[in-house]
Structure formats: C-alpha cells, structure tokens
C-alpha cells in the first residue's frame, strides 16, 4: 500500500438517471490531509464521492486508492452518507450502530469480541456519547445522530474516511466536535474527504479542496485552489457558460 499515492481519479465521466453529471474530472486526495469537496447545488459533489467509492457505475475513467484498484482496500474505507439517506426509525441502539463499524473488518459470520466492544466504547467516548449506548437512534437529535456515524467511522479504524455533508443541520456542539475529530483523523495520516456546502472559513478549516461544477474546476491545497477566480467559475455561471467563457481548467495549475 502506498499512502502517498492517495485517492486518485482520472478523467471520470459519470451519468445518473440518463443525465451526465460529471465529465472529464480528474484529481487527487492525499492521506494526512483534510480535504473538502465544494461546489454549487448539482455540481456533482456526492456523485464524485459515490463514483470514487464504486457505489455507482462510472462511464469512463480510472480510480485508484493507494496505488491499487479501490477494491483492494475496501474494508479500510468508512463512508458516512447524508443523514437524510438513512432511515432513523430503524430499530437499532447507538452501540449497535457504532458496532457496525467493526463488521467490515472480519468475516461476516464473526462474532463480536472484547476488542470490538472496547473500540466501540473508545469511539463513543471520543464523540462525547458515553451513556448513550442503549438509546434508540431514532430518539437522538440530528447532531447526536451525526456523532453516532462519526463514532462508527472511528470504530472502523479506516484509512479513508468520507463524509457527505456532515455539517448539515447539526447543533453547534456537534459542529465543533466534528471539526476536532476530523482534524485528529487527518493528523493520524488518514485520508479524510468531506463533501461540504459552506465556503465560509474553508481556508482555515481544510488543507485541500476540490471545487466542482460538473467537472473539476480546481483541485489542490486551499492556498492554491481556493481562489476568487475558481469560485467565480464554479458558482456564478452555469457549467456550460463556464466551459465556453473561462479558460479551460483554470485552476489545475494549482496542484
């Protein structure tokens, strides 16, 4: 495994329900960095993530993780989908959901062991949900639900953590806790990708950014990629206008 290779994707083309959502999209996310994917609504942020993780088929292009096909490292990927994609009335307790993070680590017929339980307890502690073990997930607040999912990702001890809009509609306590945990994850050489909708303080919060608008506008460190000009290209015009009007791939030099 070559950590320095990161999560690479090259000339991706992805369609969704017959419509082309992403085209000619290339870029890279690096281990040890906290990376954001930003872009206007419908820019293809979630689509890029799902295509990279192999959750939806791609029409064209190549994806590699740590220098191998993604398949090779699957059990080391923790994915947290948008909270609205989950049925929260599902009968499960907090400890059970966090424990599910341990499932991909062994055979599906393996039983829960002492180490699993220990990891679950640690994960709950790091998101301040001690004492919530036996609560039903449906009875939690939105922020607490998000923290349960974060704990599940921690318990999975994954090398790659991908979160889709984790900050949507969470309380302030959860928000600051999320930042803290994500930062710690990046510091321990994990590859952390966050689909994000808020451009405020992006430069302070993240190390790297990918700016999308139907294609890759810019990808790289926040200093080089998150420029006025790239934001203008991604947000002020429709992707088609940007294609015609702006110099192609204006921000690619930033990498």
């Amino acid at each position: 495994m070559r950590l320095d290779e990161g999560f690479r994707f090259d000339r991706l083309r992805v369609s969704y329900g017959g419509r082309r959502v992403l085209d000619d999209t290339s870029g890279c996310f690096r281990a040890g960095r906290l990376s954001a994917i930003v872009g206007p609504n419908g820019a293809g942020k979630s689509t890029l993530v799902k295509a990279m993780l192999g959750l939806i088929p791609i029409d064209r292009g190549v994806v590699s993780l740590f220098g191998h096909p993604v398949r090779r490292h699957r059990h080391r990927i923790a994915y947290v989908s948008q909270r609205s994609d989950i049925d929260w009335s599902y009968p499960a307790t907090v400890a059970e959901v966090v424990g599910m993070g341990r499932y991909p680590l062994g055979r599906l017929w393996r039983r829960t062991n002492f180490r699993d339980r220990e990891r679950v307890a640690d994960a709950l502690r790091s998101v301040s949900l001690c004492g919530y073990e036996d609560r039903a997930i449906g009875a939690l607040s939105g922020g607490q639900q998000q923290r349960v999912f974060l704990a599940r990702a921690i318990a999975q001890e994954a090398a790659v953590v991908v979160l889709d809009e984790p900050f949507a509609a969470v309380d302030a306590v959860t928000e600051s806790l999320l930042w803290k945990v994500l930062r710690e994850m990046a510091q321990s050489e994990r590859l952390v990708i966050v689909v994000h909708h808020d451009l405020a303080a992006l430069r302070q919060r993240f190390d790297d950014v990918a700016i999308l608008s139907g294609r890759m506008i810019a990808c790289g460190s926040v200093e080089s990629a998150f420029t006025e000009r790239n934001i203008a290209i991604a947000y002020r015009r429709t992707p088609r206008e940007a294609d015609e009007g702006a110099p192609r791939r204006a921000g690619q030099g930033g990498r």
């Binding site: 699957r74 059990h75 923790a78 499932y103 999975q156």
Partner: peptide, 22 residues
Amino acid sequence: GVFYRGFHLWSFDEQMARAAGV
C-alpha cells in the same frame, strides 16, 4: 444466523456496507 452481521448492515446502511466491501 451465519450471515447476521451482513444482513444487519445491509438492511440499515447499504451504502456504507458497499463502500466498505461488504
């Protein structure tokens, strides 16, 4: 019984399960 973990994960969060290689 044997595949309980798999069915558990599959029925709760299929996307996460697939991403993690289940």
